[in-house]
């Protein structure tokens, strides 16, 4: 894959996303989602909340990079926590 200039970090990143999608699919087959309304002001399914978590994480990272000089892993940890909260209570 060298000709496409892949790097280990990007491979890991996409593997994580792919694993997330596969896990969500399996979870959905085992226990189908019931759309509900939680803390977010809209009715969401589990997949919606996953998408929202990913999108919010992307923007938090972008904001972090744009504003602070602090290391990025701090934002990533925050996003993981927030993603968990969104999936559970969102």
């Amino acid at each position: 894959m060298a000709w496409m200039a892949w790097t280990l970090p990007t491979a890991l990143f996409f593997a994580a996303i792919a694993a997330g999608l596969v896990a969500m699919t399996v979870f959905e087959l085992v226990r189908p989602t019931i759309p509900r309304r939680g803390l977010l002001p809209l009715v969401t399914s589990r997949g919606d909340r996953f998408f929202i978590s990913l999108l919010v994480s992307a923007f938090i990272h972008a904001g972090w990079l744009g504003i602070t000089e602090l290391p990025v892993y701090m934002a990533s940890i925050g996003c993981l926590v927030l993603g968990g909260l969104l999936m559970r209570f969102g």
């Binding site: 970090p9 972008a62 744009g66």
Partner: peptide, 30 residues
Amino acid sequence: MTVVNYSVQDIFDVQTRVFVGFDWYRETLR
């Protein structure tokens, strides 16, 4: 995915490329 992959590298040619992390994002956002 390729675009994301390029966004974390400084590519001069196929052989000569350096992983730069989020530097380009930082630069662009500022």
